[in-house]
Computed example of a mutant assay.
Amino acid sequence: MTGICAGRVAVVTGAGRGLGRAHALALAAEEARVVVNDLGTTPAGEGASAGPAHEVVEEIRARGGEAVAHTGDVATAEGAASLVDTALAAYGRLDALVNNAGFLRDRMLVNLDEDEWDAVVRVHLKGHFLPLRYAAGHWRAEAKAGREPVARVVNTTSGAGLLGSVGQANYAAAKAGVAALTLVAAAELGRYGVQVNAVAPAARTRMTEGPFAAAMAAPADGFDAMAPANVSPLVVWLASAASAEVTGHVFEAEAGRVTVMEGWHPGPVADKGDRWAPSEVGEAVRELLARTRMPRPVYGAASPARP
């Protein structure tokens, strides 16, 4: 049986471990040729090693697939451009980009310093933007040359970005930015044959160790609900041509569950038809809040109370 990604070339960033590795292996199992990107840093984004990317490449090849390694920093213009160039040089095409690279530097807001903010926003948000920008440039050129792509981008957001997460202001802000970037890219790039979606995964990785270790632990037997490979089937399908006309969406993926996230929608409205006085607008807001749906709580926080 032919895989659903047969003939396609996919790039996966942060693919040396965890979710990225699972995505790369799953794409290769569906006959994609894979560019495995990983800078090989620690969970806090320190150091670099070519080992993880090359190990995944060898694992794919040992299973009969095709893959090449890229060990550049995708949060730099040079690294992102060379990532696209690697796919084109190795396989002559690029069909899918899976943005996954990232690390954590968790702190409560009052203890979070500027370097920790910048480092996390850089790798997650800029590390999504730059590969997307260079891949999109290639696909636009292809479309203008009369070779319209069947291109796919799968970004990685997080429940932290959709709801917030105590102790992760930098990460949550970056992942919220990824969700917004996904919507903008889907709207702008559709004319060039590019579909853009995002996945908010829940799985056991180096980034979920520590305070989440007990909840993420593998069971002694039975279905491992927190295995990274559980998220990959959705990523593979979104990266394939089979996902035609699915774009501009954010999905949560955990265990065997897929959820379409519906985002911001207007709720109750009060319209005076004239300028409000501060005291009366406050009364109107309280009346509106009494009629709204209670928000889901920020991760790590108590459920919000009605004002």
Rank of each mutant, 00 (worst) to 15 (best):
P295Q: 07
T156D: 11
L289A: 13
L112Q: 10
A169W: 08
M216L: 12
V98N: 09
N111R: 12
R122T: 14
V121H: 06
L112P: 06
N170L: 02
D274P: 08
A214N: 09
G161V: 07
V298D: 14
A29R: 10
W117T: 09
L288Y: 04
D115M: 09
V35S: 04
P211T: 05
A302T: 09
M1R: 11
W264R: 14
A48I: 05
G64D: 08
A87D: 05
R21W: 12
D115V: 15
G51R: 04
A32W: 00
G14N: 05
P233R: 12
V285S: 11
A141P: 01
L189V: 05
M294R: 15
A186C: 00
K272L: 14
G282D: 12
R21S: 01
A213M: 11
L25N: 11
V12K: 13
R306S: 15
A176Q: 04
A305C: 09
D221S: 11
P233Y: 07
Q168K: 10
A90N: 04
N99W: 01
V120N: 14
G65M: 03
N111F: 09
V56W: 00
R306A: 15
S49K: 06
R105E: 05
V110N: 09
L162R: 13
P52A: 08
E114Y: 15
V123K: 06
E114V: 06
F223G: 10
A225C: 06
A32P: 01
T157W: 04
L234G: 12
T42C: 03
R191D: 00
A15H: 09
R204G: 15
F103Y: 07
V269G: 12
P307N: 12
T182R: 13
Y134R: 02
A136K: 10
A77Y: 00
A135D: 01
V298Q: 13
A242G: 12
V285F: 05
A198M: 00
E66V: 11
D271Y: 02
A202N: 13
E116A: 13
V56F: 00
L25W: 07
H249F: 07
F103S: 06
V57C: 03
E116N: 15
S165L: 03
F251L: 06
R17E: 14
V84D: 02
V260S: 07
A29P: 02
L289S: 04
F103R: 09
H265Y: 10
